[in-house]
Design a protein around this nucleic acid. Structure first.
Length: 933
DNA sequence: GAGTTTGAAACT
DNA sequence: CAGTTTCAAACTC
C-alpha cells in the first residue's frame, strides 16, 4: 500500500538507487550526465519505487508505451497516501500561510500524494520560506532566498547584461514585480549559460560565471529582495540546487519584455529550468507564487514544496503587491528534484510563470493522469477551461481532460525539460533524472503546479488534484507567444536556441500538465476494486494508468504496489509487448470535429473537436451517454473510429464527426487537405511512428513516452490531452486540415479552424512570437496556443504559423513538423526539441524525444522482450505472450513503429547539422539509451 | 450494499 | 479476425 512507510521506503530506495546516477550525473553538467540521470534509462532498476511504475527505469517501458512518458516510467505514480486530504484544505492551509510540516514522513507523503494523486497538497516548503511566502507572497523572498537555492541563480546581477541591470533598476520601484522576477531571471540566465549554450548577449557563455546551486549562495546574491514575489523555495536543509528559474510572471509588456529577455536559455537539454514569466496581458491573471524546490538528492524532498494557490488569492496578492505588474515572478528552485511540475502549471491567470524546472520525467509523471485536470469552473477565471469531469482513469484518462487550462493560460511554466536545472560548478545543469524518488518528483512537480495555479479553493480540489502540469504547458507557451512584445525582447536578448528551448520547455510543461490531470474521482484519487486481476491487468484502472494502487483502492491481492515493482514492470512489459499501445493514452487529438468545442445546441457539452478516443468505443446499449462508454467517460465525442450503435454522445456523435470531417474536406480552398483525415489515419495505421509523432505532438504531455506512440492507431482523431490535432507528419505528406485555409471569413469556421490548428499551435507559437501578442483571446477550452494560431486575431499571422496553416506545402510541414513535433513530445527535452523556425539558428528539434525514445524502446521491445515475461503472479491468470499484433488504428492492438531507429538517425543527424546543443544532447541521450538497451 | 448491466480486456 | 469469456466499473435498486 502506499502507506507512508512504503513511500518512505520507496523514496529511500529510490534515493539509494539514484545516488549512483546522481553521483555521476551531478557532476556532470553534460548531456550524458543529464541523460544518465534519467531513471528510465538506467540499467538498474534504480527507479524509485515510489513513483509509479517503476519502470520507468527501463527505457523500453517508458518509451514503448505511448502512454507512458519517460517521466512516467520513472514515475509510475503512486497514489497519494492521503487521498482523504482534500486539495482544498491543503491549499487553504498553504495559502493561509499555515506552516508546512517538513517532517520527512510528511514530506514523503506529500510527495507521494502529489505525485500519485496529483492532488495538490500543501507542498512542503522550508518553514521559513513557506511561512513568509505564504503569508505574503510578495515578501517571500529574498530573505528566504538564503534558503532557497534558486536565488542563487539570481545572483548575478553582475552577470547580467547592463541593459538588463538598467532595466531592473528602473523598475525596482515596482514592488510587485515581475521585475524582480526579471532580475531573477537575469540572474538565472547567467547561471545557465551552458544550458543556453549561447550567450546571453551574444557571448558564448555564462559558464564562466559560477552559478551557485545552493540556495545559500543564491540567496546571498540575490538582490532580490527586491523581488518580493520571487521566492526560492528551497529545501532548507538540503542543498537545493537551483534549478530554477523563472520568471515570473506576468509583466506588462514592458516588464515582460524585460523579463522575457532575461529568460534563461536553459532550455537546452542540459538545462533544467527555465522560467519565464510573462503576462498574458491580463493583470488579473497574475500568479504570484511559484515555488519549486528540488531536492537534488532526492533524499530530501523537503525541498519540495507545494502549495495550492487559489487564483483569487493569488491574484489578490499579486494585485495588492503589484497592481501594475501583471505577473508575479516565481522562482523555482529545484533541488535535484524534478518536481517542478507545479511550476509548470500555468495559471490561467494571465501571468505566466515558467519554471523550467520540471524535467521530462516530470512531465511524464504528470502524464500519469491520475486525475483529470479540471479547470476550476468557478475559478472566476474566464479563461479557465471548462472543467471536465474527472476523466477516465488511466488509460483513458491519463489523459486528462484538462483542456485548456491553457486557455487562460498564463501560467508559469516550468521547463518541461526532463532535467531541472541545477547549478553546479557555477553552471546550471539540468538534471534529467530525478534522483529523487519518482514519486517525490512527481509530487513535487505536481505540487508546484498546484501552487502556482491560482485556483479557487474549489478549484483546488479539482485542479489541484488534477495534475495540471501537462495541460498547462501549452498555455504557458501560449502566453509567451501571446505577448509578442514579450517575445520580441526575448528574441533580442535571448539566443535563438535559448528562446527555442524555452518555448519547447513550455510546451512540455503544458503537456505534462495535461497528463497530470488524469483521472480522479473527485477526491483526486481514482481507485480500483479489482478482485481477480491483482491489479496487473488493464482492467485495473490504476495499473492501466501507470500508477500504483493506493489505500483508497479496494483491490484484493493487489500486486500493483511499489513493493512489487518488478512484477508490475514485468507485467506491464508483457502487456506492452502484446500491445504496444496498451498504455497509450486513449484519448488523442482528433482532426476536427464540427460538433466539438462548444456547448451543444441542446446544451450538451462538446469537447474540443480534436479530442477523440483513440480506438473508439463499441457501445451497444449505452448509446455513449453513460460512463460505460470510454468516449463519454473521457468527455470526448465519438468519432468515425467508434463502432458504437445509436451514438448519442453529447460530446460529439460519431455521425457528426464524420460530417465534420466531410465538411472540412469539402473546403473549397483546400483540396489538398481533402484527404487529410484519411491520410492521417492511413498514415497512422501505416506508420506508427509517424502517427506517433504527428499525433503526439499534442500528446507530448502524455504521460508516457509511449504516449507519443499512442496515436498509432488513430492519431488523427484524437489526442487525449489537448484539444489539439495531430499534425501531419512531413513524411506522411499529410497536409493541414482544409479548414484552416478555408474558413478565413467564417467566424465559426475560424473557430473550427482554430481547433484544427491547435495541433499546430505550437508551431505558431514557436514560429512567430512577434505576433503572439495579438492573440489575446483564448477560448476557455483552447489553449492559448490555439489562439496564437488564430488567424482572425492575428493581424500578422506569424509567418511560420501562417505558413503552416495556410500553406498547402507539405514541405513546410515537414520541415517544421518534425522538429516541433518532437518538441512537443518533449520527452527527452522539451527544450532540446524545440525548434524555432524563424531564427536562422533554429535549432531543430532533433529528437523528438518521442521518436527517438520510442524507437529505442520499440526496438527494445522487439528484441528484448523475453518470451515469457509474465510475472509469476499473473501466470496463473494467463497472460499469454504473443507476437505483437498489428492492427489498424481502430483496432485494439497496434504494431510498434518500425522506423524509429531510422528516424532517429535522421533526426539526430539533422540535429547535428544544426549544431545545436540540444540536438547533440538529444543524440547523446538517444545513443546512450540505445546503447543501454 | 448487493445485484445488474455494460463494454473493455483478455482469451480462444 | 471474429467470437467468447472474463473482468471491473458503472449503474440500479
Amino acid at each position: 500500500m502506499d502507506s507512508p512507510e512504503n513511500v518512505k521506503t520507496s523514496t529511500s530506495i529510490a534515493a539509494a538507487t539514484t545516488l549512483p546516477s546522481d553521483s555521476v550525473a551531478a557532476p556532470d553538467s553534460t548531456i550524458f550526465g543529464y541523460i544518465s540521470n534519467l531513471s528510465p534509462i538506467k540499467p538498474v532498476k534504480a527507479a524509485p519505487v515510489v513513483p509509479g511504475f517503476p519502470s520507468l527505469n527501463s527505457p523500453p517501458i517508458v518509451f514503448t508505451s505511448p502512454h507512458l512518458n519517460p517521466l512516467c516510467e520513472t514515475t509510475y505514480l503512486k497514489r497519494s497516501q492521503c487521498p482523504q486530504l482534500s486539495c482544498e484544505e491543503l491549499c487553504q492551509q498553504d495559502i493561509s500561510g499555515n506552516k508546512f510540516e517538513i517532517g520527512s514522513n510528511e514530506l514523503e507523503k506529500s510527495k507521494t500524494q502529489s505525485s500519485s494523486t496529483l492532488i495538490p497538497c500543501v507542498e512542503r516548503i522550508p518553514p521559513e520560506c513557506i511561512d513568509k511566502y505564504l503569508a505574503d507572497t510578495v515578501e517571500v523572498n529574498c530573505e528566504n532566498s538564503a534558503h532557497s537555492a534558486n536565488l542563487s541563480l539570481i545572483q548575478s546581477g553582475d552577470d547580467m547584461p547592463q541593459s538588463i541591470k538598467d532595466f531592473t533598476d528602473s523598475k525596482l520601484d515596482d514592488k510587485n514585480d515581475i521585475r524582480q522576477d526579471a532580475e531573477i531571471l537575469m540572474g538565472a540566465f547567467p547561471a545557465t549559460p551552458e544550458l543556453a549554450g549561447q550567450d546571453f548577449q551574444g557571448k558564448s557563455s555564462f559558464n564562466d560565471e559560477p552559478v551557485e546551486t545552493d540556495a545559500k549562495q543564491g540567496g546571498s546574491e540575490m538582490p532580490s529582495c527586491e523581488c518580493p514575489k520571487v521566492e526560492s523555495g528551497l529545501s532548507v536543509e538540503q542543498q537545493c540546487e537551483l534549478s530554477v528559474v523563472q520568471h515570473a510572471g506576468a509583466v506588462h509588456e514592458d516588464e515582460l519584455g524585460c523579463a522575457s529577455q532575461f529568460l534563461p536559455e536553459s532550455l537546452q537539454p542540459s538545462q533544467g529550468y527555465e522560467d519565464c514569466s510573462e503576462t498574458t496581458g491580463e493583470a488579473s491573471n497574475k500568479i504570484a507564487d511559484n515555488i519549486v524546490l528540488h531536492d537534488p538528492k532526492g533524499q530530501h524532498y523537503s525541498g519540495m514544496h507545494r502549495r495550492c494557490l487559489r487564483f483569487e488569492e493569488a491574484r489578490g496578492n499579486i494585485v495588492e503587491n503589484s497592481p501594475g505588474s501583471r505577473g508575479s515572478s516565481n522562482v523555482v528552485t529545484s533541488s535535484s528534484l524534478p518536481a517542478n511540475l507545479g511550476d509548470m502549471e500555468v495559471f490561467e491567470s494571465s501571468s505566466l510563470e515558467i519554471s523550467a524546472t520540471s524535467s521530462g520525467r516530470h512531465l511524464i509523471n504528470l502524464t500519469q493522469p491520475i486525475i483529470s485536470v479540471i479547470p476550476p469552473r468557478n475559478s472566476g477565471n474566464p479563461r479557465s477551461s471548462i472543467s471536465k469531469p474527472s476523466g477516465i482513469g488511466l488509460h483513458l484518462n491519463t489523459i486528462v481532460n484538462a483542456k485548456p487550462m491553457s486557455c487562460g493560460a498564463s501560467g508559469s511554466m516550468q521547463s518541461a525539460e526532463k532535467g531541472y536545472l541545477n547549478v553546479q560548478d557555477g553552471k546550471l545543469v539540468s538534471n534529467m533524472d530525478c534522483h529523487q524518488p519518482e514519486s517525490t518528483k512527481n509530487s513535487s512537480i505536481l505540487s508546484n503546479v498546484r501552487e502556482k495555479l491560482p485556483v479557487s479553493s474549489e478549484d483546488c480540489s479539482h485542479e489541484a488534484q488534477v495534475s495540471v502540469a501537462t495541460s498547462y504547458l501549452p498555455s504557458q507557451s501560449l502566453q509567451i507567444v501571446k505577448s509578442s512584445t514579450d517575445i520580441a525582447p526575448l528574441k533580442q536578448i535571448m539566443p535563438d536556441n535559448t528562446l527555442i528551448s524555452l518555448l519547447g520547455s513550455i510546451c512540455l510543461l503544458k503537456f505534462s500538465r495535461k497528463k497530470a490531470s488524469a483521472t480522479n474521482d473527485g477526491d483526486g484519487c481514482k481507485r480500483c476494486n479489482c478482485k481477480k486481476t491483482k491489479c496487473l491487468k488493464l482492467y485495473c484502472d490504476c495499473f492501466a494508468a501507470g500508477i500504483y494502487c493506493a489505500e483508497p483502492c479496494a483491490c484484493q491481492g493487489c500486486f500493483n504496489r511499489p513493493e512489487y515493482e518488478d512484477t508490475v514492470l514485468d507485467t506491464r512489459k508483457q502487456i506492452e509487448f502484446r500491445n504496444p499501445l496498451a498504455f497509450a493514452p486513449k484519448i488523442v487529438q482528433g482532426l476536427t470535429d464540427s460538433s466539438a468545442n462548444s456547448i451543444g445546441e441542446d446544451g450538451n457539452y462538446s469537447t474540443p473537436s480534436s479530442e477523440r478516443h483513440k480506438r473508439g468505443c463499441n457501445c451497444k446499449k449505452s448509446m455513449c451517454v453513460k460512463k460505460y462508454c470510454e468516449c463519454y467517460q473521457a468527455n470526448v465525442g465519438c468519432s468515425s473510429g467508434c463502432r458504437c450503435e445509436g451514438c448519442k454522445n453529447v460530446y460529439g456523435k460519431k455521425e457528426e464527426y464524420g460530417m465534420t470531417k466531410d465538411v472540412l474536406s469539402e473546403g473549397p480552398v483546400n483540396e489538398r487537405f481533402e484527404s487529410t483525415f484519411d491520410e492521417l489515419e492511413m498514415a497512422a495505421s501505416r506508420d506508427g511512428l509517424l502517427q506517433t509523432e504527428l499525433c503526439n505532438l499534442d500528446n507530448l504531455i502524455p504521460p508516457t513516452p509511449s504516449f507519443q506512440f499512442s496515436d498509432h492507431g488513430n492519431c488523427a482523431p484524437k489526442s487525449r490531452f489537448s484539444t489539439r490535432r495531430c499534425l501531419p507528419s512531413p513524411e506522411s505528406n499529410l497536409t493541414l486540415p482544409k479548414s484552416l485555409e478555408t474558413f478565413d471569413n467564417n467566424h465559426d469556421l475560424l473557430l473550427k479552424a482554430r481547433k484544427d490548428i491547435q495541433g499546430i499551435d505550437y508551431y505558431c507559437q514557436e514560429l512567430d512570437f512577434s505576433n503572439a501578442e495579438t492573440v489575446n483571446e483564448l477560448s476557455p477550452r483552447y489553449d492559448g496556443l490555439s489562439n496564437i494560431c488564430d488567424l482572425s486575431t492575428l493581424p500578422n499571422p506569424p509567418s511560420t504559423a501562417m505558413a503552416y496553416l495556410a500553406s498547402s506545402k507539405i514541405s513546410d510541414w515537414t520541415t517544421i513538423s518534425r522538429a516541433q513535433l518532437c518538441a512537443r513530445s518533449g520527452h527527452l527535452s522539451s527544450v532540446s526539441s524545440f525548434h524555432w523556425r524563424g531564427s536562422p539558428i533554429t535549432p531543430v528539434a532533433q529528437f523528438g524525444g518521442t521518436k527517438l525514445l520510442g524507437a529505442v524502446e520499440s526496438d527494445k521491445k522487439h528484441h528484448d522482450v523475453p518470451e515469457d515475461d509474465t510475472p509469476e503472479i499473473l501466470k496463473d491468470t494467463s497472460t499469454p505472450l504473443k507476437a505483437v499484433k498489428v492492427t489498424s488504428p481502430n483496432k485494439k492492438r497496434v504494431s510498434p513503429p518500425h522506423r524509429r531507429l531510422h528516424e532517429l538517425g535522421s533526426s539526430s543527424s539533422a540535429g547535428l547539422r544544426s549544431g545545436r546543443k540540444f540536438i547533440l544532447c538529444g543524440l547523446c541521450l538517444l545513443s546512450h539509451l540505445y546503447a543501454m538497451h
